[in-house]
Design a protein around this nucleic acid. Sequence first.
DNA 1: ATCACTGACGTACACATGTACGTGAAATGC
DNA 2: GCATTTCACGTACATGTGTACGTCAGTGAT
Lengths: 128, 128
Amino acid sequence: MVDRPAISKGEMEVARALWQIAPATVREVFEALPAARSIDFSTVQTYLRRLEIKGHAVSKLKGRVRVYSARTRERTVIRETVNDLVQRLFDGETMPLVRHLIEDRGIDEASLAELRDLIDRLDQEGQK
Amino acid sequence: MVDRPAISKGEMEVARALWQIAPATVREVFEALPAARSIDFSTVQTYLRRLEIKGHAVSKLKGRVRVYSARTRERTVIRETVNDLVQRLFDGETMPLVRHLIEDRGIDEASLAELRDLIDRLDQEGQK
DNA sequence: ATCACTGACGTACACATGTACGTGAAATGC
DNA sequence: GCATTTCACGTACATGTGTACGTCAGTGAT
């Protein structure tokens, strides 16, 4: 638990792109962002800089360009972000959110089947 | 979809207290907050004021004190907040988050059973 | 060599957010 | 009826966040 500063919404978009393709230059990250996302190159640069300051990325100059790598794993950040949400919205209880996702957002047949398998598997483990 | 400004983390704490006990005065909300949360009375006042500006609450002077009520339902705000998270972290896909919650955070026996029921129920509905 | 391009880096700037203080008026304890 | 408490309300202020511009220095094309 190094407790790095939280990643903001904007930074998160960039961080996700970085996780996908790191190590990568600013331009590569910029181009990896969803096309729909209209954002300036220098804005991406700023986000990467801030991610580094926050300890979520590292960079190194390779010749004339700066190459960024992730320093925290996506899984970790997701965990922390979700934990935070669950804490703030559901007093730390997991189930209410699971319920909300399944009932309120709805899931399709395939997912339902997958979920069933998942439960079976956990049940097995629980038995042992 | 009136698209009100998003509720910030701090505001959310207060909003949740308000949902619980509204209509309520600032002091009542203040006292309804988790004891662990050390926060000034006037800070709560500010949050309530901002919630009203953002359209999530309404207030009315009752004599000398201002009484706040929620204007958006908790369910709605939860939905929007979760939608936003799912969008930003999982490209709008529900299942990855469900998986994360179940696998990564872990759920107990009872919840597992509840989940099974939930799935059965949805399966039934799907059949029809 | 020169021009257009690209990138790093510093800087900016408005708006959001967390947090709270000060002032003045009303209510309450004694 | 005076001191104390309690509020509403205006205001503040540091920090975070979204977004981007300007400058200067390499780089590649002509």
